[in-house]
Write a protein that binds this DNA or RNA. Structure first.
Length: 140
DNA sequence: GCCAACGTTGGC
DNA sequence: GCCAACGTTGGC
């Protein structure tokens, strides 16, 4: 199956991208929203993920990769919730701010803009490539 | 701190 | 099944 692309949102005060870089991988658990859960379940090993800091100065700061597909969320006994394992791939040379994304016509369709509260969301391949490019990286 | 968007809960 | 109340998220 073709590689899929995603975006995960996190408050930097809770778990900054730097922490993920430091720990190399982390369990993306504690998600308690059905739509976000469905997205977690659809993730496959090897999928690429944009790491977004919400809160003050919201921006995409890095890229990670799914290293383990959905498994039962260890933070709850409830069977209904899942988590995935994420690995830090790289920090963007320049973070891509929400403001930049809003200004970029090719990114107008991003779920980030249309569904601001969704914490795990799908990203189109061309959107992912554009964000990576804006961040100072090469396009895929 | 405020407000908009949206999810959840509970009464009916 | 509808809707009001309430809670949470997240941008500003």
């Amino acid at each position: 199956m073709a590689k899929q692309y995603w975006l995960v949102k996190q408050e930097p005060s809770t778990y900054p991208f730097d922490k993920l870089v430091e720990e190399r991988t982390t369990s993306w658990d504690g998600v308690r929203n059905y739509q976000a859960r469905n997205n977690l379940q659809a993730m496959k090993k090897g999928d690429r993920v944009l790491y977004y800091h919400s809160g003050a100065g919201p921006e995409v700061v890095g890229i990670c990769e799914v290293v383990r597909a959905a498994y039962p969320d260890p933070t709850t006994d409830d069977e209904g919730w899942v988590s995935v394992e994420l690995k830090a791939v790289k920090r963007l040379k320049k973070p891509v701010t929400l403001e930049q994304i809003k200004r970029e016509p090719s990114l107008a369709g991003m779920a980030l803009l249309r569904q601001s509260r969704l914490s795990v969301q799908p990203v189109e391949q061309d959107e992912f490539a554009r964000v990576e490019q804006l961040g100072g990286g090469r396009a895929l």
